[in-house]
Amino acid sequence: MLVLLAPAPAPAYAHVPTQVSAAPTEVCRITDPAVTEVSGLAVTPTGYLVENDSNPDPAKTRVFTLDKACKVTGSIQYPRTARDPEDLAVDRKGTVWIADIGDNSPLTGGSGTRRSTIALWTMAAGSTQLKIHRLVYPDGVPRDAEALLIDGQGRPVIVTKDPNGEVFRLDTPLPTDNTEGAKLTRVGTFVPQRTGTSNPWGFLGVAWVTGAAVSADGTRAVVRTYADAYEFEVTGGDVAKAITTGRPTVTALPDEPQGEAIAYTADATGLLTVSDQNGPAVILRYASGLKPAPPSSAAPSATHAAAAPPKAPARSATRAPLLLGAFTVVALMLVAAVARRARKR
């Protein structure tokens, strides 16, 4: 039985800084046919890391290394089939993190079997081997998620895809090759704004969270929807606190076909995005809405941060926070299911 609930009021930001910037510039195009449906992106000194979230042949779902012209220079295969990898990050120690956290329900084009655990895959700097770490939500209820951030203490932070996305963090040691999932802690919610930015999913697209990133120096974090990028200043490495209680600067990412991946440039002056789609994927660069951070000797060098991977138009968003009732969300998810099923497992 479907129970329709009245929408709960979302917290309002007292002030939302905004920016007006030029249209994005094209950085390069990923034309290799092996790289399909890019949902995660990270920057390295020699180019980029990307991961695809699905492939007709599951064995071809991999992490790819690209040069600065977006040419594939190598790939890393999962030791066992990844279920639905959706985001990618490189932390300050050079460890690569892949968020195998997607879990599309039948409403959004997924299978009828939800996953009991989610997973993170890590690869230490200089290694070519991926290790798996299984996690579980504190109430045991499955959720679909596509956004991963790594905080200043090296803790993974996950934001669920649903409107007013829940924010979870792992506050216990990271287990490796475990069967029972390590329990996450719920630390708050990320609240998108009703920006009205044009995107393929309409007003629901401004609410679905599809990716996230932390700058190389750890002083800023960004969470994106299909329509917009929300940047936050991070204090003391506490990424979860920043994205749940901070005041964002919002940059519109209009009309990206299936905008999911996002990353900071090495100097954090720009935001890089790429759409999850078949065919050539274009990496776009937008200007960051935050002022440049002052130089800090504590920040890792670009060379160190990039050692991990092995070689192988903005608009104002000052409107009220998004309020979506359960009835509206379900109805639009049903409409989206047809399109989503054609491209997702």
Rank of each mutant, 00 (worst) to 15 (best):
N278S: 14
I101S: 06
A302V: 14
R319S: 14
R194I: 12
L324F: 06
L332A: 02
G181A: 12
E51R: 07
Q77S: 14
G259F: 05
V335F: 10
A299I: 00
G236E: 13
V223Y: 09
D144T: 05
E37N: 04
V96A: 05
E260D: 09
G211S: 10
V159Q: 07
Y264F: 15
A145S: 13
R247P: 01
T265H: 06
A317R: 04
I262A: 08
V338D: 09
T117S: 14
D53N: 15
D217P: 06
S116W: 04
V206K: 08
S54R: 15
A302P: 03
Q153C: 00
A147F: 02
G289P: 11
R83M: 11
T219D: 10
S105I: 05
T251M: 10
A336N: 14
T318S: 11
L184Q: 09
T172L: 02
G270K: 14
S301H: 03
S105R: 11
A336I: 05
W201A: 14
F232N: 09
R247E: 15
F168I: 07
A42W: 08
F64W: 09
K131R: 13
V223A: 04
A261R: 03
W201N: 12
D238F: 10
G259I: 02
T46G: 12
A216G: 03
A308M: 00
G47F: 04
R29H: 01
F168Y: 15
A326Q: 10
I283V: 15
G259Q: 04
G126I: 14
I98E: 07
A266I: 10
P310W: 04
D57W: 02
P163K: 07
V96G: 01
T225W: 05
T18P: 00
V3A: 12
K71T: 07
G152Y: 03
L272R: 06
M1I: 07
A10K: 09
V335H: 11
C70K: 08
T73W: 03
G237S: 12
S296K: 11
A207R: 07
A331Y: 12
V63H: 02
L4Y: 11
V209I: 15
G202K: 03
V35C: 00
S301T: 15
P45R: 13
I158Y: 07
T73M: 05
I30F: 00
